[in-house]
């Protein structure tokens, strides 16, 4: 190792700045340089232009739920590669790589927790795990979460962040759309609220099933939300897509979602909605200032 390598290693100088952050990162939208610490404190939203960075699943849990209340369930569910799928790489190997990269067992983390003291069952998508794609494990975890919500009479929240169905599990992935939607029909009959949160991106089989079935559907600003990906549409119709197409605000304009909610208001909005739906008094739910900037 050369002497300057040693210095580089020690100081982190000359390293490529990634979203996960070194000292500062560039905002993808306004290109402003932001200090990582400042970004984290601002819930990973650009302080200059309000661009919502994609956040990892544990940060999301920390932002949304009361500290220390989340209990992860069905951690041990793992995909078995029933199709023995192989493209340029074996699916089995892709799974292994994804497992090494992230700490989760598949593309969704599920379990009970609470928001402002109200118990909820929640599913959080993990985009870093194969693009948050839905295969059998994701479908099963979500279905089990819905079933737990029914059993324990709790509201359901799903925070989607997914490119859609997982191709490597073929038709079985497609069937998870039907499986999760069927479970939601039971939740609906039990008259339990389901709030669906759409974050960037929510497309394909995920948007065409549970994500669009919320009693209330909220979306973070400027999230890409749609059935077909923009590239597929462009190739099909051979036209440039209009600006803002398939973004949260576009969906709001077309009557497809209830509200676009800034990340800093998400927790209070959910709490308020749950209180209103249950005809409970709405206490002023102040965001715990101390909690805001903390990292897990």
């Amino acid at each position: 190792m050369y002497w300057f390598d040693k210095i580089k290693k020690k100081t982190g100088l000359g390293k490529k700045f990634t979203e996960a952050g070194e000292i500062w990162v560039e905002c993808k939208s306004c290109k402003e340089q932001i200090y990582t610490s400042e970004l984290a404190e601002n819930l990973k939203v650009c302080p200059k232009c309000d661009y919502h960075f994609r956040i990892d699943v544990w940060t999301r849990i920390h932002q949304l739920l009361d500290t220390g209340t989340f209990v992860e369930k069905d951690k041990g569910l793992v995909a078995t590669d029933p199709l023995k799928f192989k493209d340029s790489k074996k699916y089995k190997d892709r799974l292994k790589t994804a497992l090494k990269k992230g700490a989760t067992s598949d593309a969704v983390v599920t379990g009970p927790g609470s928001i402002e003291g109200r118990p909820v069952e929640v599913c959080f998508f993990d985009f870093s795990y194969m693009g948050g794609s839905m295969g059998t494990v994701v479908g099963e975890k979500i279905t089990r979460t819905i079933e737990r919500a029914i059993k324990n009479q709790m509201p359901l929240i799903i925070v989607s962040c997914s490119g859609g169905a997982r191709m490597q599990e073929g038709i079985l992935s497609l069937m998870q759309m039907a499986k999760t939607s069927a479970a939601l029909s039971k939740l609906s009959k039990a008259k339990l609220p389901y709030i669906s949160i759409l974050t960037d991106p929510t497309t394909g089989g995920v948007s065409a099933s549970f994500a669009m079935l919320g009693d209330i559907i909220l979306a973070e600003p400027e999230a890409l939300i749609g059935f077909a990906g923009p590239r597929v549409i462009e190739q099909t119709i051979r036209q440039k897509l209009p600006e803002g197409f398939q973004r949260s605000e576009f969906l709001l304009d077309h009557g497809l979602i209830d509200q676009v909610v800034h990340r800093s208001d998400l927790r209070t909005t959910i709490h308020q909605l749950l209180c209103l739906l249950k005809n409970d008094p709405v206490f002023p739910a102040e965001v715990n200032k101390k909690q805001k900037g903390l990292q897990v």
Binding site: M177, A178, S181, A182, L184, S185, S188, S207, A208, S209, F210, A211, M212, L213, I225, G226, F227, A228, V232, I233, T236, I237, Q239, L241, P242, F245, Q246, H254, G255, L256
Partner: peptide, 26 residues
């Protein structure tokens, strides 16, 4: 497959499919 087009998205392609799955089951 379902049509991937601008108007299809505007009119809620995802919602239409999801609602069918949700209601057909019952």
């Amino acid at each position: 497959g379902a049509y991937p087009g601008i108007d299809a998205e505007e009119k809620g392609q995802s919602e239409a499919i999801a609602t069918n799955l949700f209601q057909m089951i019952d």
